[in-house]
Design a protein around this nucleic acid. Sequence first.
DNA 1: CTGTTAGCGCGTTCAC
DNA 2: GTGAACGCGCTAACAG
Lengths: 343, 343
Amino acid sequence: MSRTAIATKKVTIRDVARLAEVSYGTVSRYLNGNEHVSTDAARRIAKAIEESHYTPNKAARSLAQQRTSTVAFIVQVESIATLLQASTAAAMAEANQTLGDAGYQMVTLIANSEDSTQRIAQLVQSDFADGYLLFSLSEDDSLINIFRTAHRPVVLSEASDRSTAVSYPAVDFANADGQCSITRYLLDQGKIRLAYVCGPGYSPSSSKRLHGFKQAMGAYFDDSHVYYADDWEIASGEMAAVEFQPMLHDLDGIVCANDNIAIGVINQLRRFGYRVPEDIAVTGFDDSPIATMMDPKLTTVRQDSWLHGRVMSQLLLRMLHGEVVDHQTVKLLPTEIVTRQSA
Amino acid sequence: MSRTAIATKKVTIRDVARLAEVSYGTVSRYLNGNEHVSTDAARRIAKAIEESHYTPNKAARSLAQQRTSTVAFIVQVESIATLLQASTAAAMAEANQTLGDAGYQMVTLIANSEDSTQRIAQLVQSDFADGYLLFSLSEDDSLINIFRTAHRPVVLSEASDRSTAVSYPAVDFANADGQCSITRYLLDQGKIRLAYVCGPGYSPSSSKRLHGFKQAMGAYFDDSHVYYADDWEIASGEMAAVEFQPMLHDLDGIVCANDNIAIGVINQLRRFGYRVPEDIAVTGFDDSPIATMMDPKLTTVRQDSWLHGRVMSQLLLRMLHGEVVDHQTVKLLPTEIVTRQSA
DNA sequence: CTGTTAGCGCGTTCAC
DNA sequence: GTGAACGCGCTAACAG
């Protein structure tokens, strides 16, 4: 009972004022770094805060200054399992970190159903966050429109190719460049008879990567050598290899839209009796953790997902600080080819 | 300009009241499901809300009713990379989902430094969330104490072995049971000369798993056959195998504290020329995604991380609904041994 | 059943 | 430099 007054009730700004013998208006000024506070008062207030263990109430502060110090990270995925992918998790973690260091809390919202999308739209309308990070793996427009009425900054995780009514600044990887580079890497080795396994059609990244491949192939490009997968998973890679079977003996390599697909392709190729990379070279995209766990280790295009999350939030932070950023702004993050064993 | 009144200014509850021709107190009652609203008024209010696109302001509501409809998921990790682990990511995703369905937003807080821990403590004091999920992979007490003054429900992700001053309900896996079972599985095959690779000492799960191993081994347990790793990573498994090298030819199997370590052990064993499982059987723990990607596929103890996140949040939700839960409550989630190729 | 009113805790003019 | 008062948008308790 001799402990420092077991504060059973909430201590408010008034309590602090009383303790410091000033009006609570002064305390408020002190808290918000206003110039007009005598050093003497400041000292007393600091002491009072210390003693009373005062912490400003977040809701009240939000209400008064119309800011929440919260940023929403909205992930749009078909399956919630996507959140386990290293690229998503890394971007989320780093965004969280960056925003946290800047004094913002990050709330993660998952849009994977009608219901959840509806809930999120409601939330956005209720002004519960100061800004939004839209991490979308599909190009579904339903979500992008909920920000129209909330006049708050938004940053997208992918550059949209088609021009929608509304647009926001985006941070994306140089997908085309990456795929182009790794294709050239194969070509330079004389492996010119190449096939391509494309990612799902709904994904912008998917088409950009295909575009990079086309670019590198130039006149050699042959659409009959492209398999269009329905998703980014291993199984799709296996199906692709099956599809390619008739022409396999005429192929020098297979360029894949991502690592998972590449793994599937390699697995199936092996079952068909082909050696990788001796008979057929295979490349991936992402440089996900499994790329180095495979045998052979994957030659792939590396993209830094941590960087993705960081740059997205840095851009958002600048907007939150009042900087005006053109809606059309697109920051392209570099990719890098990592040569290992599979090609 | 003929559009439905381009609402440039925030529409408040008063606007709705005016439109519906009732006092805003009535609108508030309507919004909060209060009985005492005539069906006629209700209809008019509903219409007004519809037309005005009204959405209650979250901060104001939080301030008035002293609830935020927010839950904080606090992850305590040494390295932020831990967030990439499937078990962590899955628990987070499922908790998010479960809480979201119940109308709560989940904000993720990462405690990985002095600074961040300090920030989080501040936040908790500022009453910014209604409840807390503490997902801790270490048994650092610094965080557990920040909830003392915030009189809000807390659920832990691990049962603490040592009795701390404060304690909260916890949801954990039957770690000991799992490791005990899989060890018995080996013993039953006549593989009785077993070594153990233990996880890092700071982790309760780590010691619980070791305990399960001891339990199964009974009198056969020999501490010189235990390697104590510093972390949960692949490299530690490799080091363990190196350490065990002199006794390898006398071993039937190696039980590992988790999948990563098991993979490291297998890799190193191969380099030494041992076949798995023919010469030496190896088991993991977690059943992480890589367990099936390895060759040989890992025989391991499966734990459902999604379930972990779900049960934790369900428990928290019940507490948020007013149910009183004993601080000492520990819900143990079942584990299951999955036999594949490595043992 | 409904209108009125007093807070919730804090920011922000204003005079002084 | 400082205090008083009002407002943020909404809830809840109280009359009526």
